[in-house]
Design a protein around this nucleic acid. Structure first.
Lengths: 197, 197
DNA sequence: CCCGGAATAGACTGATCGGTCTAGCGATTT
DNA sequence: AAATCGCTAGACCGATCAGTCTATTCCGGG
């Protein structure tokens, strides 16, 4: 029986999602076979198919987990580091830079998902769009709190910088692009809000 | 016998690369089977394996073709549209915007390749790095001709914007991000070189 | 203590994967 | 006319794919 707290999924299910997410990140979605996930998780085949209708459903669950993990951790870090909305906008790049510097960084999981599922209607691609939209909303909120005239425009601009930074770090294996992106963001915010401090 | 002009590869080989490239762009590398390429190209199985040692080699050939096509077309368009280096830097975004607006646009093929081949040592990933490096060199050259103090920094900044723009267009299916990226580029170039025109 | 649900190992399916091999066709060259 | 070449169709290989089924074991609650 499920002994977890109310609303908490079975431990086996969580473990499956975590393992699958790690493998999907490193090797991609098509290249990661069900057998590999089972071997890495040490879970029986039927346990997977009792918890998920198909591999595709497991992929979606893994993407939802990644969205939750990434956004939660980003907001937590950003808010613990800086107090003012303006500095928090810039702190986003510091958090991402540290993530991109960690060994095993494989770029943005959602960008990678769109690479493998190009169809805009594909559930995986749609989920990636939703993730970017939610991240954009967070940035927009910070920009609004910072007194920006057009927080939506700021959010879109910073989103472009973030995506470009993650791709730059992924392709070169060096997080230097994230630092450059932050510098550009400083220029943009300065132009919109006046010099920070 | 090969009746083409000197240095020209067999027509069948070219056709194979073109077909494979189109399929890789749309469906990805792992998801595109050899059978699909053969069916789409109407070429016999052994013709593929007489021209390429393996599917991996065909993938590399397709990526090399894409690098050649993309950079050649970009430079051709940019140079036919604008005369001054500064305006040419900005024209890059117009050309990319048009590409991203075309139906069937699936993002940057090299970013997508890095998504499927995360290992930095992987030939496909390395080729993507080389492509970005060559594009960066072109931008740097334009920036130098435009009289930039630090053309390398400009090139890296514009590269981040380009990558971010392509990802934005890919995820949302809307080329609006490319226009925003151009606007950011204008701001950056203005700050480095003074107002254009 | 015993029952029921969850998890297990592992055989099994049909399809597809990348890649090899063979036999023959058609045109070109000598 | 014979030999050579690129190309063809299609059988075939072992491996792997996602997914199903069965039979067994484990464990917590009544």
């Amino acid at each position: 029986m499920n002994t977890g707290s109310p609303g908490m999924a079975t431990s086996k299910r969580d473990h499956l999602v975590d393992t699958a997410l790690a493998l999907f990140k490193e090797h991609g979605f098509h290249a990661t076979g069900v057998d590999r996930i089972l071997e890495a998780s040490g879970v029986a085949r039927m346990t997977l198919y009792n918890n998920f209708k198909s591999k595709d459903e497991l992929i979606l669950a893994a993407l939802r987990r990644q969205d939750e993990l990434f956004r939660n951790e980003l907001m937590r870090q950003v808010e613990s580091r800086e107090e003012t909305p303006l500095h928090r906008l810039l702190a986003i790049f510091d958090v991402i830079s540290e993530g991109a510097s960690r060994p095993g960084f494989c770029g943005c999981t959602f960008i990678n998902a769109c690479a493998e599922y190009s169809d805009l209607e594909s559930p995986a691609h749609a989920l990636a769009g939703e993730h970017k939209r939610l991240l954009n909303a967070y940035i927009s909120e910070l920009a609004r709190d910072a007194g920006a005239e057009d927080p939506e425009r700021i959010a879109q601009d910073l989103s472009i910088l973030i995506d470009g930074a993650m791709v730059g770090a992924q392709v070169t294996g060096d997080a230097g692009a994230v630092a450059r992106a932050k510098s550009i963001a400083e220029t943009l915010l300065e132009a919109s809000l006046g010099a920070p401090r």
